[in-house]
Design a protein around this nucleic acid. Sequence first.
DNA 1: AAAATGACGGTGT
DNA 2: TACACCGCCATTT
Length: 100
Amino acid sequence: MDSFREKTLAVVAQIPKGKVATYGQVAKLAGSPRAARAVGRLMSTNTDTKNIPCHRVVGADGLLTGYAYGGTLIKHQKLQDEGVAFSGVRVNLSTSLWNA
DNA sequence: AAAATGACGGTGT
DNA sequence: TACACCGCCATTT
């Protein structure tokens, strides 16, 4: 499928370890700069956690959201374990934002 | 085919 | 700075 969801999943799969991307960034790379919502929806419905590191996708301000596997706590834990810098409850985008 | 939903984002109050 | 509302896009029912 060449659907937007396939592209989105592909983009997320390209996020390097120790880095994170915002929904808006992923959506933009997928081909629709305003499809941040669509991206999040796809993650929640598909939960391709085995193939897609959705835990590396955070909000525009670095705030962790959702994560259908075990909540934001697991997401936060995984990111931190990968070397992502955290600023309290949110990711330090200044140092851990994925620069495509 | 149409309406509703959702892990967002930006702006306004 | 915090809360609320509207707008955007794609998927699902």
